[in-house]
């Protein structure tokens, strides 16, 4: 709640909490009155960013926690199976082709899903199966889509297309308005809710393959299914805001420190903390300077520093 209030109040045009409450009341038709500037700032600029920040933060952090559990590695982020590189390639391709913002979003979403799908398909071609081959498939897909992204950047017009690609890759919530939110809000919320509801399954999937299967869980079906859900959630957020790093890696760690490792308790905390974290980072990114520092840079910067603190704490707990 505090991060929502801060996000609505802070910015280049500061608003008092009272003015924000009055705007929200008018929006909900609770009372009348007029404050055209505050109405415009809150309703058209900050509120869509708040909604987008909540969606991006909760989806990335729950997606990251899911990847970590399913891949049995607390140090993985959603990028491991190629969702970020695939989305980046899809969006960059659309920018170079001169597509509209809506098609750039579709390209980013499709790129992420195709990259992870390719990784899983490649892993099925490899002998033995299991977690290691899945990681190897993801590695191959990641490398291929990173190379394709470089190819698109190399062929992009350096005067206008390349800066547009670079800007998109840096990640920002400034391009997200009510129009984009109208078709992304429900699917992202549903995916986050499903991931939170599937939390007990994550406990089992984080065991060894044989252990999970001996408990009656068909891991060969459930693991790709859960990865698909997490991938869809992450790809949707990337299509909305570009590449927002560290959230999917860092927030699950902090959530485990606060709520314990059991996913039933940790996943709701993860969703809330991810949303609050992205909102705060976005508020800082647009309040810090007269311009706007891309959100992706803020999360990379603060994420890396915070991760050092988390690792220190984890090391302290272990000794």
């Amino acid at each position: 709640m505090l991060s929502i209030v801060l996000a609505l109040c802070c910015g280049r045009y500061p608003l008092s909490p009272h003015r924000v409450v009055m705007v929200l009341g008018r929006l909900l038709h609770l009372w009348g009155g007029q404050d055209p500037v505050a109405d415009a700032v809150v309703q058209q600029v900050r509120l869509p960013r708040v909604v987008a920040g909540i969606l991006v933060g909760s989806a990335l952090s729950c997606g990251g926690a899911t990847y970590q559990a399913v891949l049995r590695n607390p140090l993985v982020s959603p990028d491991l199976l190629g969702v970020l590189s695939g989305s980046a390639f899809g969006a960059a391709l659309m920018i170079v082709l001169g597509a509209s913002p809506a098609w750039i979003q579709i390209g980013a979403f499709a790129g992420g899903v195709v990259a992870v799908g390719s990784g899983i398909s490649i892993s099925r071609l490899l002998p033995q199966g299991g977690l290691l081959t899945l990681l190897m498939g993801g590695l191959v897909a990641n490398a291929v889509f990173t190379a394709l992204l470089s190819l698109v950047k190399y062929t992009a017009d350096p005067m206008d297309q390349l800066p547009a690609v670079v800007n998109w890759l840096l990640g920002t919530l400034s391009q997200t308005g009510w129009k984009e939110l109208s078709w992304l809000t429900v699917p992202v919320l549903v995916l986050v809710a499903v991931l939170v509801l599937l939390a007990p399954l994550l406990d089992v999937l984080s065991l060894g393959d044989d252990e999970a299967r001996s408990l009656g869980v068909p891991i060969q079906i459930m693991r790709p299914f859960v990865i698909l859900l997490a991938t869809l959630a992450c790809a949707m957020t990337i299509s909305m805001a570009g590449i927002i790093g560290w959230v999917g890696l860092l927030v699950p760690h902090i959530s485990r420190m606060l709520a314990g490792a059991e996913h039933r308790r940790m996943m709701p905390v993860c969703a809330l903390l991810g949303a609050a974290g992205v909102l705060l980072a976005d508020t800082v990114s647009r309040s810090l300077t007269s311009g706007e520092v891309p959100l992706g840079i803020m999360t990379e910067l603060f994420g890396a520093l915070a991760f050092i603190l988390v690792l220190r704490r984890l090391r302290g707990d272990a000794t």
């Binding site: 065991l207 060894g208 001996s214």
Partner: peptide
Amino acid sequence: AYVPQAHAMTFPYTVRR
């Protein structure tokens, strides 16, 4: 029920869990 030779305990679940 099956007890394998090696077991993955990556996350700090409690013994009870």
